[in-house]
Simulated scan of single mutants.
Amino acid sequence: MKERIYNVLFLCTGNSARSIMAEAILNTLGDGRFRAYSAGSHPSGQVQPMAIELARSVGYSGEDLRSKSWDEFAAADAPEMDMVITVCDNAAGEACPVWLGQPTLAHWGVPDPVAENGDEDARKRAFVSAFATLRRRIELLLALPLDKLDRLAAQAKLQAIGQAGNE
């Protein structure tokens, strides 16, 4: 029997760092069980170089990473999402498109490393911190027995994962 592949969309306002890193981490660690995508409500049009560098650190080529609008995933020909996860507080508060298939929704707020105004070391630390938080949450997602959870239970578990690292 073929194992189900879960489609996951990570959303952020600019789609330049956090959602991009989450896409790369899940596509790498998901071992073919997950297909991750990312998008933004107001995409910046560019991917932050540090986000690409960190994506490559987990073995993701980074060649396919691009900043794109969430409208691509609300179109009739878009892949149907099983989960839609916001990773920034701004995107979580915005009116999202209607997603086909009624995906499970969750919010995993992560501080924006692009907003770090310090020197190069401070910026790098902000990116590494965001990357580490996302990786830990994605590892928790990978450990979930999704095939045994109904939609409400899955949503509760995904929401709880969003609190990991906030304690």
Rank of each mutant, 00 (worst) to 15 (best):
residue 62 G to M: 09
residue 32 G to E: 07
residue 11 L to Y: 04
residue 51 A to R: 05
residue 26 L to A: 08
residue 24 A to P: 05
residue 3 E to A: 15
residue 6 Y to N: 12
residue 36 A to M: 11
residue 10 F to S: 01
residue 23 E to V: 01
residue 65 L to M: 10
residue 15 N to T: 09
residue 55 A to G: 13
residue 32 G to I: 06
residue 65 L to E: 04
residue 32 G to T: 10
residue 53 E to W: 06
residue 39 A to Q: 02
residue 39 A to S: 02
residue 67 S to Y: 00
residue 53 E to D: 14
residue 12 C to F: 00
residue 3 E to Y: 10
residue 27 N to R: 12
residue 57 S to N: 02
residue 4 R to F: 05
residue 53 E to Q: 15
residue 15 N to I: 07
residue 16 S to Y: 05
residue 54 L to P: 09
residue 2 K to P: 15
residue 72 E to K: 11
residue 31 D to Y: 01
residue 23 E to W: 00
residue 48 Q to G: 12
residue 16 S to T: 14
residue 62 G to K: 12
residue 9 L to Q: 07
residue 28 T to V: 05
residue 69 S to T: 15
residue 40 G to N: 11
residue 25 I to F: 06
residue 63 E to V: 10
residue 27 N to V: 08
residue 61 S to V: 08
residue 59 G to R: 03
residue 23 E to P: 00
residue 45 G to I: 13
residue 15 N to W: 00
residue 66 R to I: 01
residue 35 R to P: 01
residue 19 S to W: 05
residue 61 S to C: 09
residue 12 C to D: 00
residue 57 S to G: 02
residue 9 L to V: 02
residue 5 I to L: 13
residue 64 D to F: 03
residue 2 K to H: 12
residue 72 E to S: 13
residue 21 M to A: 11
residue 7 N to L: 07
residue 32 G to C: 11
residue 5 I to M: 12
residue 18 R to V: 09
residue 22 A to P: 03
residue 57 S to E: 04
residue 34 F to V: 13
residue 29 L to E: 11
residue 49 P to F: 09
residue 58 V to P: 00
residue 30 G to W: 02
residue 52 I to E: 06
residue 57 S to W: 00
residue 58 V to D: 00
residue 3 E to R: 14
residue 47 V to H: 05
